[in-house]
Design a protein around this nucleic acid. Sequence first.
DNA 1: CCGCAGCCGTAACGTACGGTACGGTACTGA
DNA 2: TCAGTACCGTACCGTACGTTACGGCTGCGG
Lengths: 229, 229
Amino acid sequence: MELATTISERAKAASETGGDPTPRQKAVLDAALALIVDPKAALTMSSLARAASCSKESLYKWFGDRDGLLTATVQWQASKVRGMPVRREELGRQTLEASLERFAADWLTVLSGETSVALNRLAIGEAAGGGGRNLGRIVLENGPVAMGRRLRPLLELGREAGLLAFDDAGEAFRDFFGLVVRDVQIRLLLGDRIDLSPSDIRAGAARAARQFLVLYGAGHRPDGPESAS
Amino acid sequence: MELATTISERAKAASETGGDPTPRQKAVLDAALALIVDPKAALTMSSLARAASCSKESLYKWFGDRDGLLTATVQWQASKVRGMPVRREELGRQTLEASLERFAADWLTVLSGETSVALNRLAIGEAAGGGGRNLGRIVLENGPVAMGRRLRPLLELGREAGLLAFDDAGEAFRDFFGLVVRDVQIRLLLGDRIDLSPSDIRAGAARAARQFLVLYGAGHRPDGPESAS
DNA sequence: CCGCAGCCGTAACGTACGGTACGGTACTGA
DNA sequence: TCAGTACCGTACCGTACGTTACGGCTGCGG
């Protein structure tokens, strides 16, 4: 009973933070991100308190426990990445391909950033310890799922305009995911050194968009539909 | 000086294990795999000694230190997965697609196995701590890189037979990677529950093979080459 | 039979880290 | 002036874990 009460209180504290982080708390979360990204620094409560010039007592008051801190950090980072919706310009095949390409380029840029790599590593490490962790779910929600939600309107517009042909938008998005990300993310997570210059990102995004249109473009080849028998 | 000597001795011990693991050591490594896979058990030297009914002293004698143990475990698992080369049957478009599909299905099966997920999580967690870790490199070498090496002959054969058209086999393989894996691996690593029944694997493999042939098939659409621009 | 090498089981040590407690300080409102 | 609040800095506690050390058991060559 007493234990349950404690957990409940901690959850309340954590959710309270999720509601609106104080500027001071934002600074602390930025310091936490810096520690997570730094390869030769580990994110411990003591190191964070030292780096952010705050007391551990405040950390526990604000975030409940270490898990609440990590959750708040991931959500804080996610809140900084959001935005950049697809503009609803009139859609031709050129603008559709350009939109897909820009989307893929933005995605690859975020994905290959050291912050994204570090947070994904952290969430994966947490997911290793079986219990009911939510870090992985949060990263998942703000990673692939959010990307899917943002791409879907563009796909739907393309289909309404007769430029794309697909039954399930989710399946189409997952194919786009594969064409864009390929083995880049897993290699980065495993520590492979990849340069990925801006020109590489542009080239990869253009290739992915072109391939996606080959697979899903409706008017691309007017000599007849696939008719896979 | 003394420190360097110690590290050297440990490296020697670890490499000695890499050379030929004793049957007893193989059993220990299997126990280590079981512990890694078990979500509610952590792989500590004590728990492994208890699970494998051996002394910690023996663990340190055989594997040097914890890192050597993890390395030996990953290599042991990798040695169990190898094999299954592509058969060099006469290649038609049907057999090529069937080979690609079988390859993709095998790959998805291994990839979604709990052992693969657990080992990838372990290596990613180790890669988080910056230093010169080699676990990530080993997993990378026995994962995507090994798959690429095994798929490359099939792609080359397809090209020689006039069935495939590509310049860089590596690029073609990475596209195949994306089409096969899509977001499955990252979702599994982040703890998302995915059923992935055998029929799902078959369907996904068939889809990936078909899409790959759409992108890279040479004789698939005889009404003219791509001639981009 | 003796010594010894290999191994098991367990105790012990040092350290790192999550979490808590306490004193000290600055600010606010009565 | 004084209580209250929020916070910093630090010392402290309990535990987990990597690593080492030691006692006891078995099998084998001399």
